[in-house]
């Protein structure tokens, strides 16, 4: 590991949560504007986390603090790995570990809403993980390596043209990971949730604030991987990430929540099938 990689890794550690928080702020503002409202200040997510940090509340289970910290470390580690040009598959697996810890914490909680949220979170993981893996495999095949740098600097021609069919898959993954309609099954950003706050119900105060930071880090990882689709330069990647963010916000605002059965039986297979067809196509070429 050389010094540049080290600086990039540190930058990833510090910048990723900040960018994720900003993305969440953009999300709040854009959503409000789509609903003809003013919306909160851009930095509102940071105020929210700051507020949660300073709250005093008893934990719902002795295990939750532990799992929250493990989840946060895993999420940040996946950011750092990506920034340091590490293996994208491993980065994905580490991020999956973060989601698993959140789920385990929800399982160990005391509220039935938390446990129901955990069950749904599991089915969400079941739905998006294979889709996302196949999308990454497509990128790896087209760029000739599993590490982030080779995907980012693959060729002058953007990867997008070789893999148009993974776009629905990536949007599907983003919707689930960002907890947006129609797949905000296990927890939702808004108040209108039949499971109260789903997996997040029992997390509160500082634990919840740390979980929110982990969530920002996760969103950055996924958006970053999406931006590999047009990795001809940093600006282009940023534009791709912003477009992806906007598409997700738009879908969130125009769709209603589906059931988990629909997600597992219809949405995930369709997304997976399209991505697989794309993968096979890349191999046959």
């Amino acid at each position: 590991m050389n010094l540049t990689t080290f600086y990039l890794a540190v930058a990833g550690l510090i910048l990723a949560p900040l960018l994720g928080g900003l993305a969440a702020g953009v999300d709040r503002v854009v959503t409000a504007r789509l609903q003809s409202r003013m919306g909160p200040p851009l930095l509102q997510p940071f105020y929210d986390v700051g507020k949660l940090m300073s709250k005093v509340i008893a934990p719902a289970s002795q295990w939750q603090g532990l799992f929250v910290r493990w989840a946060l470390v895993a999420s940040l580690a996946s950011d750092v790995l990506l920034a340091a040009g590490g293996d994208v598959l491993m980065c994905f697996f580490i991020q999956a570990a973060s989601a698993c810890f959140v789920t385990l914490g929800a399982f160990s909680g005391s509220s039935p809403y938390s446990k129901l949220g955990a069950q749904r979170e599991l089915f969400q993981m079941l739905s998006y993980e294979p889709v996302f893996l196949v999308c990454v495999l497509c990128m790896a095949k087209a760029s000739g390596g599993f590490d982030a740098y080779s995907m980012m600097g693959a060729s002058a021609q953007p990867l997008l043209f070789k893999m148009p069919l993974i776009i629905p898959g990536l949007v599907f993954v983003l919707l689930i990971k960002m907890r947006k309609s129609p797949f905000d099954l296990s927890a939702c950003h808004h108040g209108h949730q039949e499971l109260v706050r789903g997996v997040y119900t029992d997390y509160a105060g500082r634990d919840f604030a740390l979980l929110e930071i982990a969530h920002w880090a996760d969103v950055v990882v996924i958006l970053w991987i999406c931006s590999f689709l047009w990795a001809t330069g940093p600006l282009q990647m940023l534009v791709v990430a912003l477009i992806a963010l906007f598409v997700v916000i738009l879908i969130d605002n125009i769709s209603a929540r589906l059931t988990w059965r629909h997600m597992v039986k219809v949405a995930a297979p369709v997304a997976l099938l399209l991505a697989t067809v794309n993968l096979l196509w890349l191999y046959l070429e």
């Binding site: 008893a58 295990w63 532990l66």
Partner: peptide, 15 residues
């Protein structure tokens, strides 16, 4: 954190 949270009384469940 586990050590700290094990020694405090837990919140009542949200029902």
């Amino acid at each position: 954190v586990l050590g700290r949270q094990s020694s405090v009384p837990l919140a009542s469940p949200y029902m």
